[in-house]
Every structure is written in C-alpha cells, then in structure tokens.
C-alpha cells in the first residue's frame, strides 16, 4: 500500500482543564489522555463519544482554541502544539482547518447571508471578484443560493447551519471539523448537513471530521473513532466498531438498530453473521440465518 498523505497527526495528546483559579489542579481528571490519531488527507472520519467524553476537547485542540497540556499535534506536517506558537502560525493553520460548531446562531456574524459567507474570505484578504465567485459557489454547494440576501435570524436551524458551512467552504480549507454540528437540528436539517458533509468529502476531497454522538451519522463515515473518558477505545471501519455492541453500551453509546438486533439475536443463540451494517445488509444476514436454519 502506498504511503498515505497524513494531514492530521496527534501523538500522546493530553489535556486537563484548569480549575477556576487557573491552576492545573492535580486531581482534576484529564479531558484527554495519551491520545494518538492519524487522519489522512481526504478521509471521512467520525469521532464518536458520549457528552463529556473528551471529543469536543479534541476539536478545540485541533482548531488551536486550546493548547495541549502535553503531546504533539501536527497539521499538514507542521508542529502546531507548542505553547509559543506565533499568531501568524495559528492563522496559517486556521486557513487549512475550518470549524463548524453546534449552535448555528452563535457563529453567524452578519445581518445578511452573503455578507456572513464573506466574513472568512474578508479576513483572508481575498480580492472582491474572487470573493463573489466563492460566495456564489459556496451557497450553491449548500443549496442556499436563493437566500443570499436574506437575514440569517429568519432562517431555520438547518438553514443557518448550512450558511455557517458555506462560510467555511468559501475559505477553501483542506479540512472541516464538524463539532456536533447536527445536535441542535431537526431530522431534515440533520440530513441536509450530513449530505453536504459527504459531498464536500467526495467531490472536493476535503478531509471531514464529524464529531457526534449520533450512531447513524457516525456509521456513514469511512472510519469511526470512539473516545471514552478521554481515551481512544475503538478505531476502525463502522462495521468493525459497531460490532462491539456490549462495549458501546458500557460507554453509554449504542449501535445502529440493525446491529443491535443482530447482536441480541446472537446472544439468545440465533446465529446471525455479524458482517452487516446497513439495513439492507442486516436484512440479508437475518434472512440467510433464518432460511439457513
């Protein structure tokens, strides 16, 4: 196999939140502990974990909002985790990694959709003609073209989130981290955001990290990394990861229902092949188990 182009590399990453006085209190449990992770350029990875598992801390470290307590982070080959990193270097990293957060309301800055999408490119000093082109493209990508002149506060949650994504796309990042970006959306809004995520990955080769606690979302990625109590516990294809149903349960997580069903059947002595994930595959596996009997 050829050497993959590693975009994000995390080595022995630890992070402990400070107490109120700003000290690293010795007994505070670390939010992240000795985490290793490599993400290749163009990958589509889900980071799965329950609330408070440390997955959002990872996002904040990767976008350089937090500085690691120990360990190293390399982005596109550059060490970015040193405490004395310059503002210019941080700026360079942020050009490459875009962040989409949970609450769509709290990431829109302008009173008109297109001006909000322009915010990132403006900060990057992009020329006006180029900027207009990027806004048009970005809004098209997220299906919000007709709302170009609308006020963001009148849009639905899902639409706001799509505008927020357009604002990131217009900066042409190599990688986008979605930090629980679907948690506050209704099912239709969630579906739209997920579809956009996947199109960005497939059509533009953007590296996508989707941090989530929704199993069905995580299952759609090419790779799932499960974080529990600040540690990486599972890492593999969705099929592999969601075969560990008991382990997921013990971490307060679940597997997609098809997987749960197959697991339950196997437990009570009905042998069903575990090599299934999608509904179709699960139906197939159960069907052959039942007919095979």
């Amino acid at each position: 196999m050829e050497q993959k182009d590693i975009f994000i590399e995390v080595k022995g990453l630890c992070f402990t939140y400070n107490d109120d006085a700003g000290n690293n209190s010795p007994d505070a449990s670390p939010a992240l502990c000795n985490l290793d992770l490599k993400v290749a350029r163009g990958e589509y990875v889900s980071i799965l974990g329950h609330n408070g598992s440390g997955k959002s801390t990872l996002a904040k470290l990767l976008s350089m909002i937090l500085i690691p307590t120990s360990g190293e982070i390399y982005i596109d080959g550059h060490l970015v985790s040193s405490p004395d990193i310059s503002d210019d270097e941080i700026y360079e990293v942020r050009k490459k990694i875009g962040m989409v957060f949970q609450n769509p309301d709290n990431q829109l800055v302008a009173t008109v959709v297109e001006e909000d999408v322009a915010f990132g490119p403006e900060n990057l000093g992009i020329e006006r003609e180029e900027m207009k082109k990027r806004i048009t493209e970005a809004l098209e990508m997220v299906g919000m073209t007709e709302y170009r002149r609308h006020a963001p506060h009148k849009l639905s949650g899902g639409q706001k989130q799509r505008v927020a994504i357009a604002g990131i796309i217009a900066m042409l990042p190599d990688c986008i981290i979605f930090d629980e970006s679907t948690a506050m959306l209704d099912p239709l809004g969630r579906r739209d955001v997920i579809e956009i995520m996947e199109r960005l990955n497939k059509e533009r080769g953007i590296t996508v990290l989707n941090i989530t606690h929704y199993m069905d979302e995580a299952a759609r990625a090419n790779r799932v990394v499960v974080i529990n109590d600040g540690e990486k516990v599972l890492d593999g294809t969705p099929k592999e990861v969601f075969s560990h149903v008991d382990e997921l349960h013990s971490m307060g997580l679940e597997a997609p229902q098809g997987k749960e069903l197959i697991h339950a059947l196997n437990k009570c002595g009905i042998k069903v092949s575990d090599d299934a994930l999608s509904e179709e595959e699960c139906v197939e596996a159960i069907y052959s188990a039942l007919i095979g009997d």
């Binding site: 069905d216 997609p256 229902q257 098809g258 749960e260 069903l261 509904e279 179709e280 699960c282 139906v283 159960i286 069907y287 039942l290």
Partner: peptide, 15 residues
Amino acid sequence: PSVARIAEKLKSRGI
C-alpha cells in the same frame, strides 16, 4: 425506527 424498516423488508422477502 430503523428496526421497523428491517422487519418490513424481511416481510417483503417472505418472512
């Protein structure tokens, strides 16, 4: 629910 769709699909295959 996903599991209800699975049951539905099994039905269409004769189970």
